[in-house]
Amino acid sequence: MSAPEPLVGEQLAIDLVNTRPADADLLQTPEQLARWLRLQAHRLPEDFAEPTSADLCAVREVRDHIAAALTALLHNRRPPAAALRQLNAAQSAAPAIRHLGWDGARCVMTPRRTGTTGARLAALLAEAAVELLTDPAVAGLRQCAAEDCVLLFVPAHPRRRWCSPERCGNRARVARYYQRHKPVG
């Protein structure tokens, strides 16, 4: 059986944490990371087309720190100081420099990160975590209501209960239908 498709569409940091559903890790290989990065390409300022094992390790480490912080918030606790420190360290390892250029008509500024591919990618994802963790909307962070699902989301609608209506929401509707219509006896 193949691994489930990564769920995307939440904030980048949540999408990263959601690459680790209940009994799987969707980022076990550089190829799986490359696939996830392609799904997120519209949010990334540069192409990270061919990540290495070292890049994968850097991303997974950042994912673990984001997950620790979000889990704490989900349970109304203070995020672990070590997780926050490590997210800051990941950003510092590949600082963003405002690169000045000319577009043919005027001067333009483009932020570029320095460092290895893994450091730049980890910094970008850590920065996405900082944006999420400081956003007041994170107070609405929820875990999917399905018993066997650990995926997180910030609901746009207060009645949202599932990570995805197509995944867990549909399974819940089918289960309710079955319970109402199962043969007696």
Rank of each mutant, 00 (worst) to 15 (best):
P95F: 03
P111Y: 11
R38I: 02
A146M: 03
L33Q: 04
R161D: 04
V150M: 00
R78A: 14
I97F: 15
A82P: 00
R160H: 08
R160V: 13
A96W: 09
V138D: 14
T29Y: 08
A34S: 15
A58G: 04
A90T: 00
A68V: 07
C168A: 09
V108Y: 03
E131Q: 12
D135M: 10
L7V: 08
L132F: 03
V17L: 03
L84D: 06
A139T: 08
A119I: 05
R85T: 14
E61N: 06
T52D: 15
L74K: 03
Y178C: 01
L7Y: 11
C149E: 14
Q32C: 02
P158H: 02
D25P: 00
A175D: 12
A49Q: 05
L151T: 03
D148G: 03
N170M: 14
L132G: 09
P21F: 07
A96I: 13
T71D: 15
G118D: 06
G104S: 04
A172Q: 10
A89K: 03
T117H: 01
A34K: 04
L33N: 05
T19S: 12
L84Y: 00
C168V: 04
P4W: 09
T29F: 07
N76I: 08
R173S: 15
N88E: 09
T114W: 11
A49L: 09
L39A: 14
A137I: 01
T110G: 00
G169M: 08
Q91W: 01
R20C: 11
D135E: 07
P136T: 10
A89R: 06
R43E: 15
L141P: 14
A90G: 04
A24R: 11
V138W: 04
V184G: 07
T110E: 15
D25G: 08
P111L: 13
A89H: 10
V62E: 02
E50F: 02
